[in-house]
Design a protein around this nucleic acid. Structure first.
Length: 422
RNA sequence: GGAGAAGUACCCAAGCGGCUGAAGGGGCUCCCCUGCUAAGGGAGUAGAUCCGGGUAACGGAUGCGAGGGUUCAAAUCCCUCCUUCUCCGCCA
């Protein structure tokens, strides 16, 4: 959600920033509604003040034996006026909230300006794509040949875009989850949480998935419960409607969850393998901090995500998303992309974002710099650390041997048990 | 899922149409007394959001789980929902 005060005080700046994301007309609409809203408030609150005052005097007048019937009649009329104006105000509030809630965040000044993913900026490349003296196979073929993955059975029981891991495959997925969680908790300073996979509407609104992207979510029959698309949703919302003390910050949580995405609109893309599924595993990192620290925190988040790829010795690159490609709630996003031989290019495996106060404003997460200080909004950040299925795929593809076996990265051996998968 | 009970400020808790922005405790903060970790006395203690205001002083609105309704007036009456607790049923 946007900061209405900023829109009031610096409309031109907001306009310019949103233009880089292809949004126009927003500031004008907001200002018009805001002006209307405030005019009604002044009006209706004056009436309420009057009613309060008169109502308070009625018992005394009664005691004095005066006739209060005319006053009560007058107040009845005032009451009706109040309720008419109150409902007009409610409509404007709803309209204003809707606009503020469905318009994407302002980009950070350090986010490169660009219209789509072609204008994202590469920050660095780490590691080299493996050179193979044989024709590399895709992970779905490797996985099925080794009996690790069974997409046919997954489709039979659940439909397309589901995965089924068997035997050593299931164990590898589990080993990756443990490896990631342990790294984040013991080395990177995160506190692990295990959270519900089903959340309420207000929770989805808090992090920005709703109201705009309802059709992208899995909604339960009651109409107000949703399967989480990422652990960012329940974990960030743990702190919804709270005022934290500065000592609590930064908060750093990591969580493993399954994630559920309808993938509406991506029909035909990445139909094979583990890349794009309705249900996938992810280890997530969430950081909540003071506004002054959030860009340092973003670098920390990024390096924590990178630490997993580095330990696994997977080749990857870091890109900064441009204004046009940055997600709805984010002000700045780094994507980590892992080298995927079957695609012949780098594929997203983590997205690390600073949402600044955008989510905090929606979810009402505040902090006090010191006791008695005025509460301020925190900044929230989230990043994958990492998408587990895609990491699985990357390991299979990058560490495949000529005979179709997979060499397990050394860092993973304590979790997986052996150093070769065949 | 069935039957009951309850949700009031940091915590416990009274109130059940106007005198309650909310009694009384506890806690916390400050002060006094006391030669001192005990005890006693006094004072303070909604925080928050929104609106107005030379954006200051200050004033106003909202607010007793949430949302509606009745009324001149609601913590108090009515309706819906949520949460917690107890018992029963079911279940990992």
């Amino acid at each position: 959600m946007h900061d209405i005060k900023l829109i009031r005080t610096e409309p031109e700046k907001v306009k310019a920033m949103l233009a880089t994301r292809g949004v126009t007309g927003f500031v004008e609409k907001v200002l018009a509604l805001d002006e209307k809203r405030r005019a009604i408030i002044v009006d209706v609150e004056g009436l309420k003040a009057k009613r309060n005052e008169v109502s308070k005097s009625i018992p005394q007048l009664k005691k004095e034996g005066k006739d209060v019937a005319p006053i009560m009649a007058e107040m009845k009329a005032v009451g009706e006026e109040i309720s008419t104006k109150d409902s007009a105000l409610k409509d404007i509030d709803a309209e204003l909230k809707n606009i503020l809630m469905t318009t994407q965040n302002l980009p950070s000044e350090t986010t490169p300006v660009g219209k789509d993913e072609s204008e994202n900026v590469e920050v660095k490349k780490v590691g080299e794509p493996p050179k193979m003296d044989f024709e590399p196979k895709a992970h779905w073929d490797l996985g099925e040949n080794l009996g690790l993955l069974d997409f046919e059975t997954a489709a039979k029981i659940s439909g397309s875009r589901f995965s089924l891991y068997r035997g050593q495959g299931a164990k590898l997925e589990r080993a990756l989850i443990n490896f990631m969680l342990d790294t984040h908790t013991t080395e990177n300073g995160y506190t692990e949480v295990m959270v519900p996979y089903i959340v309420k509407r207000s929770t989805m609104e808090g992090t920005g998935q709703l109201p705009k992207f309802e059709e992208d979510s899995f909604k339960l029959m009651d109409g107000d419960s949703f399967l989480i698309p990422t652990a960012e949703v329940p974990v960030t919302n743990m702190y919804r409607e709270s005022i934290l003390s500065a000592d609590d910050l930064p908060i750093a949580h990591t969580a493993y969850t399954a994630c559920f995405r309808s993938e509406a609109g991506s029909a035909g893309r990445d139909t094979r393998g583990l890349i794009r599924l309705h249900q996938f595993n992810k280890v997530e990192m969430v950081r909540i901090c003071k506004p002054d620290d959030s860009y340092n925190e973003l670098e920390k988040l990024l390096s924590d995500a990178e630490s997993i790829l580095q330990k696994l010795k997977l080749p990857y690159r870091v890109i900064t998303l441009c204004t046009g490609d940055t997600g709805f709630s984010a002000a700045k996003t780094y994507d980590l992309e892992v080298w995927m031989p079957s695609y012949g290019r780098y594929v997203e495996i983590s997205s690390c974002s600073n949402c600044e106060a955008f989510q905090a404003r929606r979810a009402e997460i505040k902090f006090k710099r010191e006791a008695g200080a005025k509460p301020e909004f925190v900044h929230t950040l989230n990043g994958s650390g990492l998408a587990v299925g895609r990491t699985f795929a990357a390991i299979l593809e990058n560490f495949q041997q000529a005979d179709g076996s997979i060499k397990i990265p050394e860092a993973l051996v304590p979790f997986f048990g052996t150093d070769i998968l065949d």
